[in-house]
Amino acid sequence: MRREVPLAITAIVGFTLIVVYFIPHPPFNHFRNFFEDLFFIVAAFAIWLGCLNLLKVNADRFYFKRKGWPFAIVVWFGFFLMVIVGFWDGRGFMNPGTTFYYLYDILYYPLNATMFSILAFFVASASYRAFRARNKEATMLLVAAMVVMLGRVPFGYYLSSWLPEGWRLGNITDWVMDFPQTAGQRAIMIGIALGIVSSSLRVLLGLERTFASGE
């Protein structure tokens, strides 16, 4: 019951969707829309599960006075502020002029953008330590990164402005992005496709069952 039911659900849903791809006519095409809708509904509940778990963890942190417990109140405050206002504003909650949009603009957006922007400093510091031209492969990585970074800023244009058109850093960056980068990415993408196909088959045939056993 605990293991067989999940495996059966996975196989039925997965194989139905594969069959539907090859027979895109009624009634089979309705199955695709239906299962996709179910997927989105369950995924939404999974997001809710994550949010509720966050509240539970922070409630425990506050109740048992664990390290940094006062900040648990801040988490709860932020959560309920957005949820209450979001529910209050109704279906058009993200329209400009609503309170939810205002909170998004003054809280969520600046915090999110700043959090990701400080990664620029950490990436710079990590690359300073990690980017050493130890061998041919590392040198190629270093050169490609430098060319792309310099080729996308005015300083790169200034550095190579004396070169003839077509040989400037911006042109070289475009060439690297259009050809060698595309070739590498394409090999990776085809490899990923083959990997996903094989792992999907393993899941659908019940050979990969760790998700069903919880181990």
Binding site: V5, I12, G14, F15, E36, I190, A193, I196, S200, V203
Partner: peptide, 29 residues
């Protein structure tokens, strides 16, 4: 909750099987 997880895994496997085979495999080749 593993039953719901199975639905998500099954849908993802079924959709990605054909989607990635076509877009990342066939079209890229």
């Amino acid at each position: 909750s593993r039953w719901s997880l199975a639905l998500v895994v099954g849908t993802t496997a079924g959709l990605y099987f054909t989607r990635y085979l076509v877009s990342n495999g066939m079209v890229q080749t």
